[in-house]
């Protein structure tokens, strides 16, 4: 007698995946986003140098050589879009990862601790939430961008890193923090609400009755059950961050040369929209398509994981 004849059951994740497989919009979105990631992070390496200026070939129409034409400095638009996408997508993903880490731990602790600790922790979140997010990020960016050029030169002189690479890195790292540091607030509230309600569920009480310690209950029984809403919310946060990055870059407070991002490309394109609308439209389409797919993916995940739309 052993478990050999036991049939494997279907976990909630597997069920959700099957449900999602039936959602055509969500699957199409997944395909589009995967394609975007492939284009920006794999195909980009085989493209032309996005910063190669050819002043003799400004505003070239699409051709075999330049698939989507060239910009005001004669740079290849297609390869600029792919390289810009790298930064945009990376900012979205990393800032989300930062805010998920902070949000889940903060929310779980607050909800699990309960009582005064919870009340204080949540009052901090409420206060931070009332602070205009973009305002502080803009100021923070202004402060951090100065810091980043200092850091870059320090790294180059002391660690002998490649200068272009270091500049690119130190330019975007502050963005991750600026966005991630504030993006976790809503997630913390969602996770806390989940933990609060899970704490009252009988299976957690059964775990307490079985004598498990608090850490085990939190890690084994509570947090795994908060992952559904977390995944959904995180997916919907990525396009939000990509939008913020674009807005900041558009304001001149985000990504700077030699980096580029979709926000920068759109800003540059808007300058020539009357004569060369393609320079605005093509990056705009890439940008919106990515946001579109991520939002639909999030909606699909929400339906599949059966997460209520409530905010707290």
């Amino acid at each position: 007698m052993s478990a050999k004849n036991a049939q494997a059951g279907s976990s909630l994740w597997r069920d959700a995946w099957l449900r999602m497989g039936r959602n055509k919009a969500a699957m199409a979105s997944l395909a589009v986003f995967t394609l975007m990631v492939f284009l920006c992070f794999v195909l980009a390496w085989f493209c032309k140098d996005p910063n190669a200026v050819t002043l003799t070939n400004k505003f070239a129409p699409p051709s075999g050589d330049h698939w989507m034409g060239t910009d005001a400095l004669g740079r290849d638009l297609f390869s600029r879009i792919l390289y810009g996408g790298q930064i945009s997508i990376l900012v979205g993903l990393v800032a989300t990862a930062v805010s998920v880490c902070i949000g889940v731990s903060y929310g779980a602790l607050s909800g699990f601790a309960g009582g005064r600790i919870d009340a204080t922790m949540m009052r901090v979140v409420d206060t931070l939430l009332s602070i205009p997010f973009l305002v502080v990020v803009i100021v923070l960016q202004a402060v951090l961008s100065d810091w980043s050029s200092d850091t870059s030169s320090w790294i180059v002189t002391h660690w002998k890193w490649d200068k272009t690479f270091t500049d690119r890195l130190t330019n975007i790292v502050p963005l991750f923090f600026a966005l991630g540091l504030f993006g976790w607030l809503t997630l913390a509230r969602i996770v806390r609400a989940q933990v609060m309600s899970l704490k009252e569920r009988e299976f957690v009480e059964a775990a307490r009755a079985l004598g498990y310690n608090r850490f085990r209950i939190l890690v084994r029984h509570i947090i795994p059950n908060t992952l559904g809403p977390t995944v959904v919310y995180a997916t919907l946060t990525v396009p939000g961050f990509i939008m913020y990055e674009a807005t900041l870059s558009y304001l001149g407070l985000g990504v700077e040369a030699p980096n580029s991002s979709w926000g920068i490309l759109i800003k540059e394109g808007a300058n020539f929209m009357e004569t060369h609308p393609g320079l605005l439209l093509i990056p705009g389409i890439f940008f919106s398509l990515t946001l579109f797919s991520l939002n639909f993916l999030g909606d699909g995940l929400r339906d599949a994981l059966d997460v209520k739309a409530s905010k707290d």
Binding site: T247, I266, A270, L280, F287, S288, L291, F292, N295
Partner: peptide, 14 residues
């Protein structure tokens, strides 16, 4: 969704 995904700095110029 289009309204959410297309930024103001694209909508405005358009």
């Amino acid at each position: 969704m289009v309204g959410i995904c297309v930024p103001a700095f694209t909508v405005g110029p358009l």
